[in-house]
Design a protein around this nucleic acid. Structure first.
Length: 866
RNA sequence: GCCCCCUUGGCGAAAUUGGUAUACGCAGCAGACUUAAAAUCUGUAGGUCGAAAGACCGUGCCGGUUCAAGUCCGGCAGGGGGCACCA
């Protein structure tokens, strides 16, 4: 037997079948189960048609923890589903004359079988796709509940329009002024849209980040920055008496009320109500506002856009300086979407304000003195002073530091009444905007409302749900086919019964993924969730996915958990207790002489001790080795998981993606690496046979030798027990290598007994099983076990095996290691000092001198200071 | 511009959180087996000097704290990421 190589293909299929037959990965639905629960979830895939190496890595990582926790006695929930709505299905429909539904379910079928070939310990009985009628029906119920709870609303707003995908995008989905999917430059359009009230939760979403101690700091920081909290004041500036506008004052938000004495002008956003009002009878201003609107939001547009303003001729009274007035401008750099859409300009201490003031010859009044060179404050050139300092030129604020001045200014504004109300109050502002969730697309969850001329926006009746997507649609004309589907669109008003129109917008697909983790806890529930099941399983103990969702999906899901708690669908505020963001799978790129990208399979690589060169496998032409980049079709540096599984087996692929690189970093896929992983598979196979076939008396069974091997196994176990829950798989892999090396040596020795060897090997297989489950099962059988290792309890650590009688300590002289000393493990410091001084190399170094000091760190190190 | 992270052999990396730097793997080199290759096994491996014993240097660079620094502090350089006309 041992001479035969391990045949991954047939072995893997056999065990996948047995796991399936014996249903060992199905999660119990008993709500009162006695086992502690553990919910492992990997971000579910979009059914693009094929799995890629990123999926392999993601799902292998989740499967290790799932299998480990199961062996540790937890009731594990490890489900899989499909994030199945979205644009690619419509694009495919347009290109290939297919239907999005057929295309999607076809893709799901092939990806499901690919995932199954990986041997993942998933509960497939809970599988669903977000485009299943059953799922989106429940999502529509959620939507109506959110409407009732005032968590979703409709408003006319300036929104991001993607001209290629022909749909609105949320702020989170605009990256550098471009659509996150299409890459097209986003335009601003005024549309009436549905919004989720995520901004109501700004403070909660921000402050609760502190409690997420199993989240990467980086993700929490990104969310905190996105929520963008700033403290400041809201100040009312009264328009000077002679103004004839409908507004009597301009509201301003500022984080720097301390610099009020430095105010030189006011500036309004182009879309500010006052700007629009004034533009009504001023053509010049109207033209200026139109100009401002044309400026895009792309990085280039912003950087090159000149700061421009328009003097309205209006003035406001300064809140602190009697008789002092400030001119009011409309300016192109003031955003309507942040604060109040109006600012006061303090030119001396804000570069942008300074540029603007110089251009329009406005007051530049320094109010903060640089402590290093106080005089400079009064000679402002073209550079604003942005540092901290002492207030000057500022009336009652003079002499205060920044924070004191802010408090004092707010205090004064509070007391100072304007028309019977305080002129200013302390205020907190957030950058987070409400989530615009309407999409002008077909392949999404229909928004279950009807527009009636008499009743307005009317929620669809619950008994009429789901609002099912019509299947008889065509994609030969751009735009939303729902818009031009009269029999679907034209319905009677659920309230008054008169002819009305269905909402033809569908929901952002991020809505689908904002609660799927809750649906998995009972995917057949007749309401969105079975509250008992949801509360039993949630929050997800370990969630694993890419960092690209740090804001979008993870923030939306946190909002949904809160909204679903309010609407009674669960009682869990934070959906994901532990979050792990895994790195990408990257690969070297190759180009032919004429610049065409080449696939790894087309290349032969020669490695001459570090000098790598490549040539074309067929033509023999020289090939240029390029950078290591994310696997992508355009650069042709992808490796198909199917090919790897067919050639080497799923275990090899799993072992490779788990080895070497820490899971949160990118892993470089290399041919040599895969072959190395596969060599290890074969090595285990040979070793297990050697162990199984070793004659009973091949080893004398010396107590020290047997104990040594057992201790090695328990040392490895102790470390792996720390590493797997921390997802430090590369380190766990290293421990397994070390242990296997030791078993190989023991197997060859004549001292270790065959019994001990067999038992240690079995224990090793248990430790390998979460990572290479098929290999472990097959070897488990070879060792003579009847059951399945996947259904076997994790080995119990014997603490006594970690205890040693003596310990070897490094001995330093003046901080440099000069030797070692072996002492009894419990020897007192005094004894260690004495023993160290007996050592020849220490005496040589001392040469009759007395040491100045001897530092003994028990169990660690000895340092002799001379 | 603002905020954050990273930098350890030829390569991926490890280092019990201040205590033997380079575990484990990949690639390499030398050898064994073989007619040969593959497969497998054994040995070797941070740098410099040295026949060796050994000495000195060494975790991006400069400085500091400490008996002791990859780890802590200050500064600099390079790489990566997030946000961005945010008042």
């Amino acid at each position: 037997m041992a001479s035969e190589r391990y045949n991954a293909r047939s072995v893997e299929q056999k065990w996948q079948q047995r796991w399936d037959d014996e249903k060992i990965f199905l999660t119990s639905t008993d709500p009162d189960g006695s086992k502690e629960t553990y919910y492992v979830l990997e971000m579910f895939p979009y059914p693009s048609g094929r799995i890629h190496m990123g999926h392999v890595r993601n799902y292998a990582m989740g499967d290790v923890i799932a299998r480990y926790k199961r062996a540790k006695g937890f009731e594990v929930l490890h489900p899989m589903g499909w994030d199945a709505f979205g644009m690619p299905a419509e694009n495919a429909a347009m290109q290939n004359k297919t239907h999005p539904k057929g295309w999607t379910y076809h893709n799901i079928a092939s990806m499901r079988s690919q995932l199954k070939s990986m041997g993942l310990s998933l509960d497939w009985s809970r599988e669903f796709a977000t485009c299943d009628e059953d799922y989106y029906a429940q999502q529509q119920k959620l939507f109506l509940d959110f409407m009732k709870a005032d968590l979703v609303y409709r408003k006319n707003a300036k929104v991001n329009w993607d001209p290629v995908d022909m749909t609105v995008l949320a702020n989170e989905q605009v990256i550098d002024g471009r659509g996150w999917r299409s890459g097209a430059e986003v335009e601003q359009r005024e549309l009436t849209q549905w919004f989720f009230k995520i901004s109501d939760f700004s403070e909660d979403l921000l402050s609760s980040l502190d409690g997420l101690d199993q989240w990467p700091a980086k993700v929490k920081l990104m969310q905190a920055n996105w929520i963008g909290k700033s403290r400041g004041a809201r100040i009312r500036f009264p328009l000077t008496e002679n103004s004839t506008t409908s507004l009597a004052e301009i509201d301003v938000f500022t984080t720097r009320p301390d610099t009020l004495y430095g105010a030189g002008f006011m500036a309004l956003a182009a879309e500010h109500p006052l700007s629009l009002e004034l533009a009504g009878n001023n053509e010049e201003l109207s033209a200026f506002i139109d100009d401002c609107r044309k400026i895009g939001t792309s990085v280039a547009a912003i950087e090159t856009a000149e700061k421009r303003g328009f003097d309205t001729g209006l003035t406001v009274d300064h809140p602190f300086i009697e008789g002092h007035v400030l001119p009011v401008y409309v300016a192109n750099f003031v955003l309507m979407g942040y604060g109040t859409g109006a600012i006061f300009g303090c030119a001396a201490h804000d570069q942008r304000d300074l540029d603007f003031a110089r251009k329009y010859d406005l007051d530049v009044i320094p109010v903060i003195a640089d402590p290093q060179s106080p005089d400079v404050a009064f000679e402002v050139g073209d550079t604003a002073y942005l540092g901290d300092g002492v207030m000057v030129n500022s009336g009652f604020l003079n002499g205060l530091a920044k924070d004191e001045a802010i408090d004092a200014a707010i205090e004064k504004l509070n007391q100072q009444l304007l028309d019977g109300a305080p002129q200013g109050v302390g205020e907190i502002n957030y950058k987070l905007r409400d989530w615009g969730a309407s999409r002008q697309r077909y392949w999404g969850c229909p928004i279950p409302v009807v527009h009636c001329d008499d009743c307005g926006v009317v929620p669809e009746r619950e008994e009429n749900l789901p609002v099912v997507l019509p299947e008889d649609v065509t994609f030969d004309i751009p735009g939303n086919p729902l818009d031009r589907h009269p029999t679907w669109r034209d319905v009677d008003c659920p309230s008054c019964g008169k002819p009305a129109r269905r909402e033809t917008d569908t929901m952002d697909t991020f809505v689908d993924s904002s609660w799927y983790f809750a649906r998995f806890t009972d995917p057949t529930s007749k309401s969105p969730t079975n509250v008992t099941a949801a509360n039993r399983w949630l929050p997800v103990d370990q969630y694993i996915g890419g960092i690209e969702h740090a804001i979008l999906h993870l923030l939306y899901s946190r909002f949904f958990a809160r909204a679903m708690s309010i609407t009674g669908h669960m009682d869990v505020q934070e959906p994901f207790k532990g979050l792990f963001t895994q790195g990408m799978v990257v690969h070297e790129t190759y180009k032919s002489k004429d610049g065409a990208w080449l696939q790894p399979s087309e290349i032969d690589i020669t490695d001459d001790g570090g000098n790598r060169s490549a040539r074309h496998a067929v033509t023999g032409e020289d090939v240029v080795i390029g950078g290591i980049e994310k696997m992508s079709k355009s650069k042709r540096n992808t490796v198909d998981p199917d090919d790897i599984i067919a050639t080497f087996g799923a275990d090899t692929a799993r072992w490779f993606v788990l080895s070497d690189s820490p899971p949160d970093r990118d892993v470089i896929w290399t041919e040599a690496g895969v072959e190395g992983a596969h060599r290890f598979v074969q090595r285990i196979w040979r070793l297990v046979h050697n162990v199984a076939e070793r004659p009973e008396h091949a080893g004398s069974g010396e107590e020290t030798a047997d104990l040594g091997l057992r201790k090695a196994a328990h040392r490895a176990l102790a470390r792996i027990d720390e590493m797997i829950p921390g997802l430090r798989y590369n380190s766990a892999v290293a421990q397994i290598y070390t242990l296997v090396n030791e078993i190989e040596q023991a197997q060859k020795s004549t001292t270790v007994s065959s019994d001990t060897l067999n038992q240690t090997m079995a224990m090793t297989l248990q430790m390998i099983a979460p990572m290479m489950p098929h290999l472990a099962e097959e070897c488990w059988t070879v060792l003579g076990h009847d059951g399945m290792v996947s259904a076997t309890d994790w080995p119990v650590l014997d603490e006594s095996m970690l205890v040693e009688d003596s310990i070897t300590l490094p001995v330093q002289i003046n901080g440099k290691k000069r030797g070692e000393i072996t002492v009894p493990v419990n020897m007192e410091k005094q004894g260690v000092e004495e023993a160290v001084l007996q050592e020849r190399f220490v005496q040589n170094a001392l040469s009759d001198k007395e040491p100045r000091k001897i530092v003994v760190v028990p169990g660690r190190i000895v340092n002799v200071v001379i």
